[in-house]
Design a protein around this nucleic acid. Structure first.
Length: 598
RNA sequence: GGUCUCGUAGUACAAUGGAUAGUACGCAAGUCUCCGGAACUUGAUAUCCCAGUUCGAUUCUGGGCGAGACUACCA
């Protein structure tokens, strides 16, 4: 239990004893005291004024005095400013907290609750490589999975691969036309990029043919459809659905190339999945839902044979769930997939990490499930995240402004290399140690940059800012960690520290920066909980940055190794150790590694 | 047109209805006989507009103005 919630029962008791008033804990507002005032925690008094008919100043003095009388060893002092009662706890409270927790690497991690959560993220297409938008998705999805694990949930990470459809056929047709049998192996190009090139070639050729037809007087829309390369693509889709062997073979071959490429990237960024779903397997699922829905009267059939759901009562539109020719649409498939996932795992909650452009789709999906009376409908949660934009605006593939995932990762690592060499602190590292360090720093910077913002909000990715390793960045946190390790290498031994009694008088009083650091350390479990509840990794990013900043302030003000007494030295070593444990723990929830040296 | 988001220093982001609106980059000025300067300290600069609810509004409500997403028998 954290300190703020330890205070609450005392306050409730005081209110009862002093005024015979009954309040609940949730009615109390206790916050960290703002730095410009004296105190550790602040009780907001305004909410009692009306009921108790006393001025806030009066209440503050009475409650403060009573608290101190009740537990003088806990409450050291208090002051009242306007409607705020600022409470200062005794330093020994903090010292004891530190002593009990400094060596616990699992601090803040909850034990298993038995709750089962499935997280779907990444979900790429197999016709082009991953880009910056995918990275936001992947980092968020992976991180939220880890955060939920830390809260005691059993988590299954899944990925739905969009491996079929007209867009895949485009790459396939272009490859047949232009590749001359070239492969990733013969060209030494990463598989996903290789296939992506043919997708681009398709679009170029399509545009060329289209313009030619328009020169001969054809309208734009018709020219788009009538271009020979588009005709060939549509034919290929039909052949695919018919299972024509040579088409299937090509399709499998090209997808394999892409998967090989994806796996290289996934491995490098540390993404992993417990279960892959492929649309080529799932796209026919969901049709039985249509039957079920029709029977229940949830869906209705139009004269042309297409099946719809009417959501106008919910303020939405009518939505198609099955085409008139009886084939599935996106929604049909998602209905089936939700059921499939439930059959596979019997989850309590199912999280979809999907961009906010699909808010409407996800809302409809959940609503349909509710109307069909599915028990798991409630557990469906859309973790909606905003688009990543560039300073120049949205990324547009047609204008070539899409930031490729592999490119940006390489660039970040290159900047890490450059800066590391400039500083020259790890000249004794081997080649492979250096390569690994550059990835740690480069990816740390990139992940932090993409996750430090509230997922719900769209964000701007400024390439220049992203390679700045100062301030509110991943490398700043990593640097703080490395610096602590340097101290601990010299002096820190957890077993020795435990045997020393830092609870005695010579460690007191605490300096402000010592206390502020402990107060922050103590918040970590509550921070994880908040991040989980809000499905928001940025809570962790902001916290670990503030913790690092606080440590650096402490570090510059007070000497650890040359402390004024042995006990102070032990206390500060404990602070170092706990800070570094929590930095490691927090960054690992973000998928960011921390280096021993950098 | 309809539905939904979002408007905070030059820029990018924070702030369960609480105190003098934080942080970073950039800008200006400092800190080192220092356990790692990828650090620390200080300064200047902001809540789109108008009402309302409240002891108290960046936050909630209504109305403007501005930006974006969605609104396919595409996925």
């Amino acid at each position: 239990m954290n300190t703020a919630s330890q205070i609450k029962p005392f306050v409730l008791r005081a209110l009862k004893d002093l005024y015979n008033a009954e309040f609940t804990e949730s009615e109390l507002t206790i916050t960290a005291t703002r730095p410009e005032f004296e105190g550790d925690f602040t009780l907001v008094l305004f909410s009692f004024v009306k009921q108790l008919k006393k001025s806030p100043e009066h209440l503050g003095k009475e409650i403060g005095g009573y608290l101190q009388k009740m537990s003088p060893e806990f409450f050291k002092s208090y002051n009242v400013i306007k409607g705020f009662l600022n409470l200062t706890l005794s330093d020994s409270h903090w010292v004891i907290f530190l002593k009990e927790n400094f060596s616990n690497k699992m601090f803040g991690i909850q034990s298993q609750t038995g709750n089962k959560v499935i997280v779907e993220y990444s979900s790429p297409n197999t016709n082009k490589p991953l880009h910056l938008g995918h990275l936001r998705n992947i980092f968020l999805g992976w991180s939220i999975a880890e955060i939920l694990k830390a809260q005691g949930n059993e988590v299954i990470k899944t990925c739905v691969v969009n491996d079929r459809g007209i867009h895949i056929c485009k790459s396939m047709v272009a490859w047949q036309l232009f590749a001359n049998g070239a492969t990733p192996e013969t060209t030494k190009i990463k598989g996903d990029h290789f296939v992506g090139e043919y997708y681009v070639k398709f679009n170029d050729e399509h545009l060329r043919q289209q313009e030619e037809l328009m020169k001969n007087g054809m309208g734009k829309e018709e020219a788009e459809k009538e271009a020979p390369i588009m005709k060939a693509t549509q034919q290929m889709l039909l052949d695919w659905e018919a299972g024509k062997p040579e088409v299937m073979e090509l399709w499998e071959k090209m997808n394999e190339w892409v998967y090989k490429g994806f796996n290289v990237t996934y491995k490098r960024i540390g993404a992993d999945f417990d279960k892959m779903y492929y649309e080529s397997n799932t796209y026919l699922l969901g049709k039985k839902f249509v039957e079920e829905g029709l029977k229940q009267g949830v869906f209705f059939r139009k004269d042309d044979g297409s099946v719809w759901i009417d959501l106008t009562a919910e303020g939405l539109d009518q939505k198609l769930v099955l085409r008139k020719d009886g084939t599935s649409v996106y929604m049909t498939q998602d209905l089936g997939l939700a059921e499939e996932k439930y059959q596979d795992y019997h989850y309590d909650q199912s999280i979809y990490v999907v961009g906010d452009e699909q808010n409407y789709h996800m809302k409809v999906l959940k609503l349909i499930m509710e109307k069909l009376g599915k028990p798991y409908a409630d557990g469906i949660f859309h973790l909606s995240y905003g688009m990543v934009e560039l300073p120049s605006g949205r990324m547009k593939s047609r204008e070539g402004t899409v930031v490729d995932a592999d490119d940006i990762i390489n660039e970040m690592a290159a900047v890490a290399k450059q800066k590391t060499e400039d500083l020259g602190k790890v000249k004794d590292f081997s080649e492979s140690e250096l390569a690994s360090l550059y990835d740690t720093i480069g990816l740390g910077a990139l992940k932090f940059f993409l996750m430090r913002v509230d997922p719900k909000k769209k964000m701007v990715f400024n390439p220049e800012e992203s390679v700045d390793f100062h301030g509110f960045t991943g490398p700043f946190v990593q640097y703080t960690y490395a610096r602590i390790q340097s101290i601990l290498r010299k002096e820190g031994n957890a077993a020795d520290l435990k045997s020393v009694n830092t609870g005695n008088r010579s460690v007191l009083p605490l300096f402000n920066s010592e206390k502020q650091l402990i107060i922050l350390l103590e918040q970590f479990p509550a921070i994880i909980q908040l991040a989980a509840e809000e499905h928001n990794p940025s809570v962790i990013a902001v916290y670990v940055f503030n913790l690092s900043r606080m440590f650096n302030t402490f570090y510059s003000e007070l000497s650890v190794i040359n402390a004024e007494s042995e006990e102070k030295k032990q206390l500060r070593l404990q602070l170092c150790m706990m800070t570094s444990n929590i930095i490691a723990s927090a960054t690992s929830l973000l998928g960011i590694k921390v280096p021993e040296r950098m």
